[in-house]
């Protein structure tokens, strides 16, 4: 069965189209189902029906007591936001240093930073609790930002170092020969090229601190409680209030649609620039 190149191209195009469609169903299906659940009336939540009277009751319920999703949302935004704002520049500086300079014990140091993340949180959370108690950081934004930084920094440094490693040093060297200082080189040459990397690292940090559950659970009480902890309050002793989780989940995911469009654009944009150089 011989196919002309044109026919082959067409078959391949179709196959690719089908594959992408399947992929989108696999990725979006569960999310769509969660969204549907969030607008279902309680009597239809545990059925597979697609025909129901949509309701906003679930959304209304999550903003009221005892869940207060509104306040928790603010906490989550603030904690994750500050984590990114502080974490990414700090990680970038360290990553640059790890990537460009030679120093003693660099390898060990780098590995050491990464290795701090090897111990499962479940075991260090009690010591953390004791430490924060001494420092009066329990249930504060500061404490939560701090702990999130310690989680995201190692990975952010590692990811950013990977990006910086792929940028040729020649341009920097040329600029330095022309008399530019190192800091200027970083600002004017390195930073623009690492923007896609910075974006990914930023998103990574944001999502990580956004989703942190265990630390937030033990280290907050009422002032700094975050969304994932609220999510867990839907596990009542009377069962899992799945419809409320779905409503909160929808709420958490919607902004991500917007963010992700820009994220992927920057990826491609940055990568294109890279290939042009």
């Amino acid at each position: 069965m011989a196919l002309s190149p044109r026919q082959r191209g067409r078959v391949l195009f179709c196959l690719r189209g089908i594959a992408i469609a399947v992929l989108l169903v696999v990725l979006l299906g569960p999310i769509a189902w969660i969204f549907l659940t969030s607008i279902k009336p309680l009597s239809d939540v545990y059925t597979m029906t697609l025909f129901f009277d949509p309701t906003l009751d679930n959304f209304r319920a999550i903003f009221e007591r005892p869940f207060y999703v509104g306040d928790r949302l603010l906490n989550s935004l603030a904690i994750s936001g500050f984590t990114v704002l502080i974490g990414v520049p700090v990680a970038l500086a360290a990553a640059y240093s790890f990537s460009r300079f030679s120093m003693r014990f660099k390898k060990t140091l780098f590995f050491g930073v990464l290795a701090t993340q090897f111990v499962p949180p479940i075991v260090v959370v009690l010591p953390f609790f004791l430490m924060f108690r001494q420092l009066h950081l329990l249930d504060t934004w500061t404490g939560m930002v701090w702990i999130n930084l310690s989680i995201v920094l190692p990975f952010a440094i590692w990811m950013l170092k990977g990006f910086i490693d792929t940028i040729p040093v020649e341009m920097e060297e040329a600029a330095m020969t022309d008399g530019a200082t190192r800091l200027r080189v970083i600002r004017d040459i390195v930073l623009p090229v690492t923007i896609p990397g910075v974006f990914v690292a930023g998103i990574f940090c944001f999502i990580f601190s956004w989703n942190d559950f265990l630390y937030a659970l033990i280290l907050t009480r009422k002032e700094a409680v975050t969304l994932p902890v609220v999510l867990s309050t839907f596990y009542t002793e009377e069962g899992d209030r799945w419809e409320l989780m779905a409503a909160t989940g929808t709420f958490i995911l919607l902004p991500m649609f917007a963010i992700s469009y820009f994220v992927q654009r920057h990826f491609v944009h940055g990568a294109t620039q890279g290939s042009d150089r």
């Binding site: 005892p66 659970l217 009480r221 867990s232 309050t233 839907f234 596990y235 009542t236």
Partner: peptide, 10 residues
């Protein structure tokens, strides 16, 4: 101070 039953012991 309400805490979900699942996390009460922790």
């Amino acid at each position: 101070e309400f805490i979900p039953f699942r996390n009460l012991l922790e």
